[in-house]
Design a protein around this nucleic acid. Structure first.
Length: 519
DNA sequence: CCGATTTAGC
């Protein structure tokens, strides 16, 4: 079959392929775009050389661009189309409205909506769905709702679009209500609702809904699995994650880049970095997100040198790192105490890869430099920030100051923290402790008094662990667990062991223990 | 025409 010709975007097309293409363009560029996976650039080349340029051809290329995430190109093509005097129809409008959704260009989207009404174009259900989606993606929930309500014969697509819309605006309950009302649901609305829970950090609700889905006769697909794995990563639910991995194999779901990446991430976040790497190497197709996930996973496990080695491999295979990749790289440097490398990558990020550091990158650098005792440089980094330093940045500096006994600078950082978050009891306590450590009793007393005057409540430290499906919760000095005595004996032993390794790894471990109020 | 993967450390 002619249209089964499949071209890998990274390899250059051979003569055989071009022969097919020349033949095919005489038929229809539309089917070519739909059936042959080629770079849209090649389709454009054929289009430019083509003598048959009817409305269908234009529409196909416009929708081809939209499909490849090149909304801007689609809009440019429409300008050309107008110049050639070709009049757009409903199908053209679907592509153009979808482009505006992609570009989050509300004004342009509204213009097309007006154009459609002014020219009396047929408001078909797919076009209404595209408009609803455009209003959702551009942030106009009211307009999306009114569009949705005006659709006489709503389809699954219409309902799903609106479910996603409510979820995007944090109206999870409203999204769920609408979801429950959808008749004859296929996998897509299920995936949308499960994904909405994941996006809202409600991993448990996501897995509960997946469980409900299994009670229906709708077959979960790759997207379902990606969402559920994401939920597992959030919850640290390794057992469910392993079950999903088995399910993927049993059901012969395709290990595509997104699914593989979700598995790599799940294993890393749930503590099994070995299995994470195993899946990574088994994956037939990896993209830059896959590499980013594995780099972040290695960093999370304190495996700094491997993280950097994978970063260098990623560059070697020609993939582009993004700002998330660099967060992993910087986190790795931070864990490994690799100050020079950290500086190098932070600079490289802007100079070589044209990426703009975000607040998180700055806080990572402050943490890295601060831990290494380079307090002046850390402070300079904060001053160089183009955005307002957030609580995390000052928190990193404050932590570093406590670690290296710089009361003056620590004081400054803590006051900034209190300005940003005056209700966080932890900051008052840590600041008072810092004064106490420096034997500045008057200042310590002042801070405690201030906390009392402001009526800041101490939030009790709390942690939880899931064992055999039962969530065990502990608050500070909690003795209510039936096996409390054994647990505390174990904790004391753990603490002793941590004190032994503390000299090798710095003060990080003991800080954590104190911070959680176990001692 | 609707649904997917990566984001510090506390």
């Amino acid at each position: 079959m002619l249209f089964n010709v499949s071209i890998d975007a990274s390899s250059s097309p051979d003569d055989h392929y071009w022969a097919h293409l020349r033949w095919a363009r005489l038929k229809s560029i539309g089917s070519l775009l739909r059936n042959v996976r080629i770079r849209v650039g090649s389709a454009r080349q054929v289009f430019d050389e083509s003598c048959v340029r009817d409305l269908v051809t234009w529409n196909s290329l416009i929708n081809g661009y939209v499909h490849c995430g090149q909304g801007l190109e689609a809009l440019k093509l429409y300008e050309e189309m107008k110049m050639e005097g070709v009049r757009p129809d409903e199908v053209t409008m679907i592509g153009l409205v979808a482009s505006c959704a992609q570009l989050e260009d509300l004004n342009q989207g509204r213009e097309f909506h007006c154009f459609i009404e002014d020219h009396g174009l047929d408001l078909t259900v797919p076009l209404c769905n595209a408009l609803t989606d455009m209003y959702v993606k551009c942030g106009d929930l009211k307009a999306a709702e009114s569009m949705f309500h005006n659709i006489k014969k709503k389809t699954t697509v219409s309902w799903t679009t609106m479910v996603v819309g409510y979820a995007k605006f944090g109206l999870l309950d409203k999204a769920r209500e609408l979801f429950d009302d959808i008749p004859d649901k296929d996998a897509v609305p299920w995936n949308a609702m499960i994904g909405a829970y994941v996006q809202a950090q409600c991993g448990k609700e996501a897995l509960d809904l997946f469980h409900e889905m299994q009670g229906t006769n709708v077959r979960p697909d790759e997207v379902t699995m990606v969402n559920c794995l994401s939920a597992c990563s959030q919850l640290g639910a390794l057992d469910v994650g392993i079950w999903i991995h088995h399910y993927v194999k049993k059901e012969n779901l395709s290990l595509n880049a997104a699914l593989g990446t979700a598995l790599v991430d799940m294993y890393a976040k749930c503590g099994n970095i070995g299995k994470s790497l195993e899946v990574f190497h088994e994956m037939p197709v990896k993209n830059s997100l896959t590499w980013t996930a594995v780099i972040g996973g290695l960093a999370l496990h304190g495996n700094a040198n491997d993280a950097l080695a994978y970063f260098s491999m990623m560059i070697d295979v020609g993939l582009e790192p993004d700002e998330v990749t660099f967060l992993g790289v910087l986190a790795a440097c931070c864990h490994g105490g690799l100050v020079d490398e950290g500086r190098k990558y932070f600079a490289q990020m802007t100079s070589e890869y044209r990426l703009t550091p975000k607040a998180k990158h700055y806080s990572c650098m402050v943490d890295l430099l601060g831990r290494a005792g380079q307090l002046q440089e850390a402070e300079a980094i904060i001053r160089s920030m183009p955005m307002e330093p957030d609580a995390v940045v000052w928190g990193a500096l404050f932590f570093a100051c406590r670690m290296h006994g710089n009361v003056m600078m620590g004081e400054k950082a803590a006051w900034k923290l209190l300005e940003l978050d005056p209700d966080d009891s932890g900051i008052y306590v840590l600041l008072a402790n810092m004064y106490g450590d420096a034997e500045m009793w008057d200042e310590a007393r002042k801070v405690r008094k201030m906390m009392k005057n402001r009526g800041v409540e101490k939030t009790p430290g709390c942690s939880s662990i899931e064992i055999d499906g039962v969530v065990n919760e502990f608050t500070i000095r909690d003795k209510s667990h039936p096996e409390s005595e054994v647990i505390y004996t174990c904790l004391v032993q753990l603490t002793k062991q941590l004190e032994l390794v503390e000299s090798d790894f710095g003060q990080e471990f003991s800080f954590n223990i104190y911070a959680f109020g176990i001692l």
